[in-house]
């Protein structure tokens, strides 16, 4: 158990290191690029204009940008370990501050979407499995394929068109109370609901074919109690695993959904800083997204043995 924990922690750190390294070197892959971008902001205040060679050289000297990428990376990582992610080129605010302001919005959106997809996906999956090959099953399953195939940004536009613009039920964009949360959360949760529904269905069908279900019938248990005590827990084991992966997809989706609904979260910050070529902020966003993703998967690994006694024991 303890060894497992240490191993998980090791992988956790490794992923953080690899992803930040990759991102760092990708963003610095164009030689001299960083100095140019910095010069644009420092001297011209905009990414649209081109700085002169002298201005670029000044920036290079001041921030010591001519040294090797590796030494730049080491100083960035060293500062990051102390919580210092540098300053945004654009606003000159500390990156960690920019991110922490927006963190709650993203966390709210992601968690509400995950919860939504569980509350929709699991019951419908079970229903479809219980009524296998019935009309209910066909409707659930085809809606799920639709949900997986629908581009989330298009779904966002359609929902906005119908519920905000035509019916006036919800606000179109922005951040605020519950009413602002509904459309983004529904958009973001749809695909995950569909994935979880399909998985629950197939896992339930698989479990109902197992020998121990037949043995439970042989004991004289009713269909209902077989279902509740014997089938459900086994069927949910793969669903727990997929939640971690789905959370990753959701975080990817927040980038688009936050942009559409003007939701002030990290995803939108990432897009804005990509267009503004605000390298420190891009790096910070990726770091935080990785962290959130890894933490959730860490938590899932921790609750796993509670559901599946075969994992994590001796």
């Amino acid at each position: 158990m303890f060894f497992n924990f240490v191993k998980r922690l090791g992988i956790f750190c490794l992923v953080l290191i690899i992803s930040t390294t990759l991102v760092f070197f990708m963003l610095h892959s164009l030689p001299g690029e960083k100095a140019v971008v910095m010069a644009k902001y420092i001297f011209l205040g905009s990414v649209e204009l081109n700085p002169s060679n002298e201005e670029i050289q000044l920036v290079k000297d001041k921030f010591d940008l001519d040294r090797s990428l590796i030494s730049q990376y080491i100083s960035w990582a060293g500062a990051a370990l102390h919580g210092d992610l540098g300053r945004s080129y654009k606003s000159n605010d500390p990156v960690s501050q920019e991110i922490l302001i927006r963190l709650p919005a993203t966390i709210t959106l992601a968690f509400v979407s995950v919860l939504m997809s569980l509350f929709i996906g699991i019951p419908l999956g079970i229903l479809a499995a219980v009524k296998q090959n019935s009309i209910t099953d066909y409707i659930c399953s085809s809606t799920a394929v639709l949900g997986i195939s629908m581009p989330n940004f298009w779904l966002a536009l359609l929902l906005m068109l119908v519920f905000s613009l035509k019916l006036n039920l919800t606000p179109t964009i922005g951040y605020g109370g519950l009413s602002h949360l509904i459309l983004p959360a529904v958009t973001l949760g749809t695909a995950s609901s569909a994935v979880i529904m399909r998985l629950t269905r197939s896992s339930m069908l698989e479990v109902m074919r197992q020998d121990y279900i037949r043995a439970a019938r042989g004991k004289g248990l009713s269909r209902k109690s077989i279902f509740i005590t014997h089938a459900l827990r086994n069927a949910l084991i793969p669903v727990i695993t997929i939640i971690g992966l789905e959370f990753g997809h959701l975080l990817g989706g927040t980038v688009i959904i936050e942009t559409i609904f003007a939701w002030p979260g990290i995803g939108r910050l990432l897009i804005d800083s990509i267009s503004a070529r605000d390298i420190p902020v891009i790096q910070g966003c990726v770091l935080f997204i990785t962290l959130m993703y890894m933490l959730l998967n860490f938590a899932i690994d921790a609750v796993y043995p509670l559901i599946d006694p075969r994992i994590g024991g001796n």
Binding site: Q210, D211, A216, G218, L221, H230, P309
Partner: peptide, 18 residues
């Protein structure tokens, strides 16, 4: 289970793992 009981083959798969 009360009047007629069955002992299944392959106990590993016939016992519920969880």
């Amino acid at each position: 289970g009360r009047e007629i009981a069955q002992i299944f083959q392959n106990p590993l798969s016939s016992l519920n793992p969880v």
